[in-house]
Deep mutational scan, measured.
Amino acid sequence: MDALKSAGRALIRSPSLAKQSWGGGGRHRKLPENWTDTRETLLEGMLFSLKYLGMTLVEQPKGEELSAAAIKRIVATAKASGKKLQKVTLKVSPRGIILTDNLTNQLIENVSIYRISYCTADKMHDKVFAYIAQSQHNQSLECHAFLCTKRKMAQAVTLTVAQAFKVAFEFWQVSKEEKEKRDKASQEGGDVLGARQDCTPPLKSLVATGNLLDLEETAKAPLSTVSANTTNMDEVPRPQALSGSSVVWELDDGLDEAFSRLAQSRTNPQVLDTGLTAQDMHYAQCLSPVDWDKPDSSGTEQDDLFSF
């Protein structure tokens, strides 16, 4: 819950932080000083300027060897085509990944977070970031790969997607708890209302004896509580940590079903599988986004697919 609360507080303090972009060759504004600060901008989305290598189908939802083989196929196909790589912007948030063309600003792909089953910074092609997700059109699994400016960037994108998945799962947990509370309150309110109706004398007997209905007592009954809980029953509950912020979080049926399955089948359902080692994760978390744009010590960066 700490990640969720800190993310909400950060967004309320400075929503404009989320509009910064990394990996864009110096076009961005001043960047936060450390990885923790940038992680807090996830709610509205972190932007990464990358190059799209392509996509291939895979048979399993996750796995280092599986993704490595898929990336190898994608890279080989991209090299064989001889075409310049498409420059894209990857927007990562707890909602998922939005992929747009840098030149036309046209939407290429919009992947809900619950469809993503794996992401990684490839070991062999260490400047490549990739994720595996279920197609929104059918049940097939797709591996999408992107060329980053350097290994640090690939690791940073991988960690960002993993963190977005974690925050999304926490949102789901909060929403589920809130819905259970509202359902319980609604049920209790309905029981109270039913009890009051059972003990209320029939209207005919009131008229016969000349008694008047006590409207004041009726007004004191917990009807307002019942209506408050039943009027918006169809509205999706939102985490309290975000009250007053500009973010509107809505959970669709697909996300609810997917996270429910994860909660039942996995020990740590909030953790998205990645190909990063503990050492890689520690190294990337210690980086400032400013470091992502620094040239690798191995030599001059080449803006070309064939540089790796």
Rank of each mutant, 00 (worst) to 15 (best):
72 K>E: 04
4 L>H: 06
242 L>S: 10
59 E>K: 15
42 L>S: 11
91 K>G: 05
284 A>F: 07
301 E>K: 12
117 S>C: 01
191 D>V: 09
29 R>A: 10
14 S>M: 01
251 L>R: 09
229 N>Q: 04
277 T>N: 02
59 E>S: 15
114 Y>V: 03
295 P>K: 07
125 H>T: 00
248 V>Y: 04
286 C>I: 09
233 M>W: 03
303 D>C: 06
81 S>T: 15
221 A>M: 07
142 E>W: 08
235 E>I: 04
233 M>N: 03
55 M>Y: 09
53 L>W: 01
145 A>N: 00
195 A>R: 14
142 E>M: 09
184 K>A: 08
231 T>K: 05
267 T>H: 08
211 N>W: 03
267 T>V: 04
146 F>P: 00
81 S>W: 04
285 Q>L: 14
131 Y>P: 00
236 V>K: 06
23 G>C: 06
7 A>R: 12
186 S>E: 07
94 P>F: 05
218 T>E: 09
189 G>Y: 04
220 K>C: 04
253 D>Q: 09
276 L>C: 10
280 D>T: 08
78 A>T: 02
301 E>S: 04
302 Q>C: 10
199 C>E: 12
247 V>A: 02
200 T>W: 05
96 G>D: 15
255 L>V: 13
167 V>H: 11
31 L>A: 08
56 T>R: 03
215 L>P: 08
216 E>D: 06
291 D>F: 04
90 L>A: 05
61 P>Y: 11
254 G>H: 12
185 A>H: 06
101 D>G: 13
125 H>Q: 00
212 L>E: 04
113 I>R: 01
78 A>P: 00
38 T>I: 15
186 S>P: 09
209 T>E: 13
159 L>G: 12
30 K>E: 13
294 K>Q: 01
57 L>M: 03
250 E>R: 04
146 F>V: 01
185 A>W: 08
194 G>P: 04
57 L>W: 10
307 S>D: 07
11 L>D: 01
30 K>S: 08
37 D>L: 10
122 D>Q: 00
156 A>I: 11
36 T>S: 13
27 R>I: 13
230 T>N: 07
14 S>I: 00
208 A>N: 07
76 A>N: 10
225 T>D: 04
79 K>Q: 01
79 K>S: 01
57 L>N: 14
15 P>Y: 06
86 Q>K: 15
217 E>I: 12
63 G>P: 13
61 P>D: 01
135 S>P: 15
139 Q>Y: 06
256 D>E: 05
27 R>V: 12
148 C>V: 01
54 G>Y: 00
294 K>A: 07
124 M>R: 00
276 L>K: 09
159 L>C: 09
235 E>L: 07
216 E>Q: 07
109 E>P: 01
114 Y>I: 08
234 D>M: 03
97 I>N: 00
98 I>L: 10
267 T>A: 10
248 V>I: 14
191 D>L: 06
125 H>D: 00
272 L>A: 04
123 K>C: 01
232 N>R: 08
55 M>T: 10
200 T>N: 07
163 Q>E: 08
285 Q>G: 07
290 V>S: 07
260 S>L: 10
266 R>C: 01
258 A>T: 08
260 S>W: 09
302 Q>H: 15
9 R>H: 14
249 W>E: 13
268 N>S: 11
282 H>S: 11
167 V>M: 09
104 T>Q: 12
67 S>N: 02
235 E>R: 08
25 G>S: 04
93 S>M: 13
163 Q>V: 10
274 T>W: 02
80 A>L: 15
70 A>C: 08
25 G>C: 13
38 T>S: 15
36 T>K: 15
304 D>P: 07
197 Q>H: 04
135 S>M: 12
37 D>N: 13
237 P>C: 09
19 K>N: 11
197 Q>G: 03
181 K>W: 11
176 K>C: 06
216 E>C: 03
41 T>W: 12
2 D>F: 04
222 P>D: 06
206 L>F: 09
172 W>M: 02
247 V>H: 14
229 N>F: 02
28 H>W: 07
63 G>R: 01
110 N>P: 03
287 L>C: 03
164 A>T: 06
40 E>D: 14
268 N>T: 08
243 S>V: 08
197 Q>M: 07
227 S>I: 11
56 T>Y: 04
152 K>N: 02
151 R>Q: 05
289 P>W: 07
271 V>M: 08
260 S>N: 11
148 C>N: 10
120 T>I: 02
30 K>V: 11
145 A>W: 00
28 H>R: 11
33 E>V: 15
241 A>H: 05
113 I>F: 03
157 V>C: 13
89 T>G: 08
113 I>E: 10
83 K>C: 09
108 I>L: 07
281 M>I: 01
210 G>W: 06
228 A>K: 05
179 K>D: 05
173 Q>I: 11
217 E>G: 06
201 P>H: 10
279 Q>T: 08
211 N>F: 02
22 W>S: 08
